[in-house]
């Protein structure tokens, strides 16, 4: 029951974040969305992911967004009725709505073939992970399987992730440095 309630709250949060004209409120609601998503992750027993989502997803993203908003504009441009009724604007809206509905329909069609929620016989739960669950303590002497896989078996993945963060940091520094006028 609580799962359904949380999912309802998250859909409402997403709708409000997207239709808010005040971008600061939209950012705060995005933070709430991330945090409730972390709660759902905890309900689904993904505790490590919930930690990361609550601290990095809800925390740092909100801080970055607010920092960016403080240097740009807080309010979205308010289009008048005449501007909204222009054929080009309506065309854009209709086309994007159509595209999104087609995408959603295709995805729902693909969901029909998916294994049921929580099915232990699903192919995703059958192949690699049983070995991790059976052998990880013996091979890495680590109780938490997620940590063992993250830092042991898939250490190169984590190295790639660190490279991505490093590159992103360099990008942000290069983009935001102040040029000295000579």
């Amino acid at each position: 029951m609580i799962d359904v309630m949380l999912l309802l709250i998250i859909v409402v949060c997403a709708i409000f974040a997207l239709f808010m004209k005040d971008l600061l409120s939209a950012t705060i609601i995005l933070g709430i969305y991330s945090f409730i998503m972390a709660t759902i992750f905890t309900r689904l027993n993904a505790v490590d992911v919930a930690f990361t989502e609550a601290s990095v997803g809800a925390g740092i993203t909100s801080v970055l967004m607010i920092a960016a908003l403080s240097r740009t504009k807080r309010y979205e441009y308010h289009y008048t009725k005449l501007q909204r009724r222009k054929p080009s604007a309506l065309f854009l809206k209709v086309i994007s709505l159509l595209l999104v509905i087609i995408t959603g329909a295709v995805l729902v069609y693909g969901t029909i073939d998916m294994p049921e929620f929580g099915d232990p016989e699903a192919p995703a739960n059958k192949h690699v992970s049983p070995r991790y669950i059976a052998e990880s303590e013996h091979e890495t002497s680590e109780k938490n399987i997620v940590t063992a896989v993250l830092a042991g078996y898939r250490g190169y993945d984590t190295l790639g992730e660190t490279t991505v963060i490093f590159t992103a940091g360099i990008c942000v520094i290069l983009l935001l440095r102040r040029r000295i006028n000579t």
């Binding site: 689904l44 027993n45 993904a46 490590d48 992911v49 990361t52 989502e53 990095v56 997803g57 740092i60 993203t61 970055l64 967004m65 920092a67 960016a68 995703a124 739960n125 690699v128 992970s129 991790y132 669950i133 399987i145 997620v146 896989v149 993250l150 898939r154 993945d157 984590t158 790639g160 992730e161 991505v164 963060i165 590159t167 992103a168 940091g169 990008c171 942000v172 983009l175 935001l176």
Partner: peptide, 25 residues
């Protein structure tokens, strides 16, 4: 539960934050 998707998503969360940072810059 299956630990492998958890690991993949741990990586993906951090990557998503760094892409957001570059886009905001």
């Amino acid at each position: 539960d299956n630990p492998l998707p958890h690991v993949l998503i741990l990586t993906a969360i951090v990557v998503s934050v760094s892409t957001t940072a570059v886009a905001l810059a």
